[in-house]
Design a protein around this nucleic acid. Structure first.
Lengths: 229, 229
DNA sequence: GGAATAGTGTCTATTAGACAGTATGGG
DNA sequence: CCCATACTGTCTAATAGACACTATTCC
C-alpha cells in the first residue's frame, strides 16, 4: 500500500496582463458560485491527470479566454500551498503570468459581464474585491513582471507583432509606473543586439513623424539590465 | 460532493549547497529502496496537511540534516509537476535551495555513508547517478543561485557569521565558475551600502596579511547587479 | 506654419575593468 | 630575508542620464 501523507488538488491560475490606453490591466472573472461569490478571481482551472501545470495554464488561456496560441508570453511566477487557501479542499496553486497585446472582446467585456480587464492598481489598493489569495498572487506576479522587464526582452510580448519604440516604452512605463526619457530609451533599446529588428516599414498611428516598425529579435536576456528610472 | 480532477502528493525537495575547499557541493542521499535504489537523490519529504511547502522544506532541513535553525538561507526555486516524474504516484515537488556555510558531519559522511556532499559539476555532467528528475532540479537550482548572486546579497549565506572579503569572493567564483579580480572585487563589495559591516576584528586564517572580518548588513538587493566575469 | 512625435548628437558624471604599487602578517 | 594575502591608487573605455537639435508627418 501507498502512504498518502497529504493529498491535494493541483490548480493553475493565470494573471493575464495587458495594456489598455497605457494602463496596466489584469483579466478577472466574477465568481458565480461560493466561495467568494460575486467577487473577482483569476482565471484558472485544475491540472488534469495527463498534463503538467504549464500545459494546464496554456489550455486555460487558449480555451477559456480565447487568446490565440503563439500571441502571448506565459511564465511561471510562484506556487501557493498554504493549507487553508481554498476553504473547500487543499489546493496547491501554480500561478502564471501571461503577457498579451490584446484580450479578445469575447473574453472580457462581453454581454455576460462576468469577465473584465480591471486596473492592476485598483486590485492592489483594495478597490476591487478579490477572492481567495488572488490579490497576493497578482501582487507577486506584478513584481515578477517588473523584474523580468529589467532582465529580459519580454516587454515586447505586450506589443503586437510589429510595434514602434514608443509603444515598447509605454509598456515599461505602465509596468514600472515611471516615466522614461524617450530619447535615451530609443538609443538604448535600438542599440541592444538582437532585441529589435527593423522591418523597413513605418507607421503614423502614434501621430507625428512616421515611426519605424520593429519585430522582436533573437535576444531574450538583457545584460546589463534595463534600469527603472 | 467535491470533484477531484487530479489528486497529487505534495513534496518539498531541497538542494543544499555548500562549499568544500572552494568547490561547490550538493547534499545527496543514497536511496535504500526502489525506485532508483542505490542512486542518489535530494533530501526531501512530503508536505504535511497542516503546513505549507516552505515549512516542510525548513523542517526537512533542520530535522533530517541537522543544520541549525538560522544558519541557512532557504529559497524556493521551481515546481515540478510532470505526471510521470514519480513512477509510483503523482507527486508535485516544490524545489528549494538552501545555502549553508557548513553541513554537520552527522548529516554527510557519517558511518551510515548514505549521505554525502558531492560536487555539483559531477552531478550535472552525469558522473554521479541521480534518481527521479533530481539532476534537472539541481541544474535549475544552480542557475537560480547564479542569478541570485548577481542580484542579491545571499552569497554571504555560504559564509560563517564573520567572514573575510576573500571568503566571499570564493563563493562567487565557485558558484559562477569564474575568476574575479580580487582588488576590484574588494573595492566593489566594500563600497556597496549595507552589504558588509566591518567588525573591527581581523583574522589570518587565509594566510598573509590579516584580513578584516565582516558581518552581513541590512541590504538584500544589489542594484546595479554584480557582474559575472 | 504649427503641433506632434521620431530620431540623432553631445556633454558629464559614474563605473567596470585592468593593473601598479604599498601594507602587514607568517615562515 | 621571502612569500603570501590585504588593501589602495590610478588610468581607460564604456555608459547612464541630461538635454539641444533636426526630421517628417498631419492639421
Amino acid at each position: 500500500m501507498t502512504f498518502y501523507p497529504s493529498l491535494a488538488n493541483l490548480a493553475a491560475d493565470i494573471a493575464v496582463f495587458t495594456l489598455v490606453e497605457a494602463e496596466l490591466r489584469v483579466l478577472l472573472i466574477r465568481r458565480a458560485n461560493p466561495p467568494f461569490q460575486g467577487m473577482w478571481a483569476l482565471p484558472g482551472g485544475f491540472v488534469e491527470p495527463h498534463e503538467d501545470a504549464h500545459s494546464a495554464a496554456r489550455h486555460e488561456l487558449t480555451e477559456e479566454t480565447g487568446i490565440p496560441e503563439g500571441s502571448f508570453h506565459l511564465e511561471f511566477v510562484a506556487a501557493y500551498t498554504a493549507p487553508g487557501r481554498d476553504p473547500r479542499n487543499r489546493v496547491a496553486s501554480f500561478a502564471y503570468m501571461a503577457l498579451v497585446p490584446q484580450v479578445p472582446p469575447t473574453a472580457a467585456g462581453g454581454d455576460a459581464a462576468d469577465a473584465a480587464l480591471l486596473p492592476v492598481a485598483g486590485v492592489l489598493d483594495g478597490t476591487v474585491p478579490v477572492g481567495f489569495d488572488h490579490r497576493t498572487i497578482i501582487g507577486d506576479a506584478l513584481e515578477h513582471a517588473r523584474d523580468r522587464l529589467e532582465n529580459t526582452t519580454i516587454a515586447a510580448a505586450f506589443c503586437p507583432p510589429e510595434f514602434t519604440v514608443t509603444e515598447l516604452r509605454r509598456v515599461y512605463e505602465a509596468v514600472w509606473g515611471t516615466r522614461l526619457d524617450m530619447r535615451n530609451f530609443h538609443r538604448k533599446v535600438t542599440g541592444i543586439e538582437g532585441f529589435l529588428e527593423p522591418t523597413g516599414r513605418k507607421t503614423t498611428r502614434d501621430g507625428g513623424r512616421p515611426a519605424e516598425l520593429y519585430r522582436t529579435g533573437e535576444a531574450t536576456r538583457l545584460r546589463p539590465p534595463m534600469y527603472r528610472g
